[in-house]
Design a protein around this nucleic acid. Structure first.
Length: 555
RNA sequence: UGCCCGAUAGUAUAAUGGCAGUACGACAGAUUUUGGUUCUGUUUGUCUUGGUUCGAAUCCAGGUCGGGCAACCA
């Protein structure tokens, strides 16, 4: 018996539209403005738009909303396409709002001819002043009653470029007393003598979002135009243009954007972090951008699962970043090969193991897989690097690791018994000494000895040195954007910790960007595609493993 | 003192007039050659006041709280 999965409100609307025959199939679109890199919030929108089309056998366009040449660049177009593909989606049509400039100009002329638009010579201060406020009505512009012929002539002259920036605008003639500010004669076109990333110098007038977006949707026969909640009050205007133009009736629906705690999610703020050098760029592994998450070692699968789990609604929400981390651990646990790496090394000397001898032990690559992902060979010898935190001279209660007299299993090798330690002049432990039990070799242990703890290690003469980069949350505060003042004051100064010289098992020298590893007991790591060199990978830590021991200690 | 939207465990999300369920988290236990994974159990919720109804998280009214709207940005 299969469980019925409940529908979100958009799926309900679509099923109703399909059931009543309003549409035979649906068509959605993902409409980024190419003025920044995509972030995890966009992933929610991408998964929604493409997911809906997949589910109901429809189509999804990728459309760049490039109506403001001041902020938009081709670099962003390329990164957006890369990120959408990486997430696992392929679009049907690839369009640019700028492709529609001639058509939009023609639509605008239609509105003028029908008395629905006029050219206004007021400057921006005058327009703002006459617009009124949310609690007081606005006043009509003195240019509101120009003749259709004059409006047509002036609008053409605006297009010809004979007026300077800001000299005139085209406005829709709606209602300066409307309680909805967006209906108080909104601006449709403004003059900008600025080259556009695609149309160059061809145009010097550019349509505003409200006039361009719905009309672009209509041109593409978009049935369900999905955007975020802040555009809700724009919907009456969206419909007004379409109604007055009599074109394909696309409809706008809004959902709540994603907010994640301990980070910021606005392109403006992310751009500030990049421009002020507070991060290493849009793809800094601490950034919530898709390129940052990718570099950090997040998988597309984990992000899609995350978007599925958080759901779609119309109420404001702040998702705990812990859920994102759960999703990536879930996926990485399944696919990442296990390796051993020592982040904070201390030397372990096995005093009863022959000097100069090396033997090979076998280690399974992934215990989650049917065949354990195969096995690999590891060199084992008398001197090993182990984690400094795995030894305590005076053990805590319930301590399962090394302490004088205590036994632990060296993962994939022998059980050893701790005999003591060597300290330097300052009393700092520099070596741990132990003896091994030859009959306890992994795979052929008939000793019957059971130990509570198993620790990871790498052979001193065979280990490779490598740089590891550990990341923590970018901000100290749950909602850095909520407070008054500068959000950048809440940056976490310890969000990046560089370990210049960790010791890794030798096979890792061949690790390449795009591969996922679990360093046993330490976390998931992936080679950094910018910092790694041939044979010398630098690793980013994607996320730690859950650590119940550390949690217990905190209490 | 305008208009629009919203409110279910700590965080999200279901229940579409009929037993308030699920995930993450937290807590406890089992298993484990990763204090990982897996498994089991426990915990915590319908903003408020009325109304309609045999029956309300759901419908209606008032209130409270939260978000959005006054860019020639999107």
């Amino acid at each position: 018996m299969s469980e019925e999965k409940s529908l979100n409100f958009l799926e309900e609307i679509i099923e109703e539209d399909l059931r009543t025959g309003k549409y035979k199939s649906i068509h959605t679109r993902f409409p980024p403005e190419p003025n920044g890199y995509l972030h995890i919030g966009h992933a929610k929108s991408i998964c929604l738009n493409f997911g809906l089309a997949d589910k109901y056998g429809g189509k999804t366009n990728l459309r760049f909303d490039d109506t403001n040449p001041v902020t938009e660049e081709t670099e962003y177009v390329d990164s957006i396409k890369e990120d959408v593909r990486w997430l696992g989606f392929e679009w049907d049509g690839e369009y640019f709002a700028s492709d529609y400039f001639p058509q939009l100009f023609s639509f605008a002329c239609d509105l003028i001819r029908n008395g629905h638009a006029y050219v206004d010579d007021s400057n921006s201060e005058e327009i703002a002043a006459s617009k009124g406020t949310p609690t007081t009505t606005g006043k009509n512009s003195p240019f509101r009653e120009r003749s259709i012929e004059e409006n047509l002539r002036l609008f053409s002259e605006m297009k010809e470029g004979i007026f300077p920036d800001g000299a005139k605008v085209l406005r829709a003639k709606i209602d300066m007393a409307s309680p909805n500010m967006h209906l108080r004669d909104p601006i449709m076109y403004r003059i900008r003598h600025v080259p556009h990333h695609r149309t160059g110098d061809k145009w010097c007038i550019y349509p505003m979002y409200d006039f361009a977006h719905g009309e672009s949707d209509s041109i593409e026969n978009i049935t369900h135009s999905i955007c975020t909640l802040e555009f809700e009050v724009h919907r009456p205007l969206y419909q007004w243009y379409i109604d007055k133009l009599g074109i394909f009736p696309s409809r706008q629906y809004e959902f709540a954007r994603l907010n994640l705690n301990y980070t910021v999610m606005s392109k403006r703020k992310l751009l500030q972090l990049v421009n002020e050098g507070l991060v290493d760029g849009w793809n800094d592994p601490r950034m919530p951008t898709l390129s940052g998450l990718r570099r950090r070692g997040y998988t597309p699968e984990s992000i899609r699962n995350f978007c599925e789990r958080i759901g779609i609604q119309r109420r404001e929400n702040i998702i705990d970043v812990g859920l994102l981390e759960f999703c990536v651990r879930e996926d990485l646990n399944r696919i990442a090969e296990r390796r051993m790496a020592v982040l904070d090394p201390i030397k372990l000397v096995i005093t009863n193991y022959p000097v100069g001898q090396t033997e090979i032990v076998l280690a399974e690559n992934n215990p989650e897989k049917e065949d354990h992902g195969g096995v690999r060979e590891l060199p084992f010898c008398r001197e090993l690097w182990i984690e400094a935190e795995d030894f305590m001279e005076v053990p805590a209660k319930k301590w399962f690791r090394l302490a004088p007299g205590q036994m632990v299993r060296l993962k994939n090798a022998y059980i050893v018994q701790c005999e003591g330690c060597v300290k330097d002049g300052d009393g700092k432990v520099i070596e741990v000494h132990c003896t091994y039990l030859p009959e306890t070799r992994s795979g052929s242990d008939h000793s019957g000895i059971n130990v509570k703890g198993t620790i990871h290690w790498v052979s001193v003469p065979h280990a490779i040195g490598s740089e590891l980069r550990l990341y923590d949350r970018l901000f100290k505060m749950e909602d850095p954007a909520s407070e008054d003042g500068d959000f950048k004051e809440h940056l976490n100064p310890d969000s990046l910790q560089v370990i210049r010289h960790a010791w890794l098992e030798p096979s890792l020298s061949q690790a390449r960007a795009g591969e996922f590893y679990q360093f046993i007991r330490k976390g998931y790591f992936t080679p950094d595609h910018m910092l790694s060199q041939e044979g010398r990978p630098v690793f980013n830590r994607t996320v730690t493993l859950k650590d119940n021991w550390a949690k217990t200690q905190k209490k």
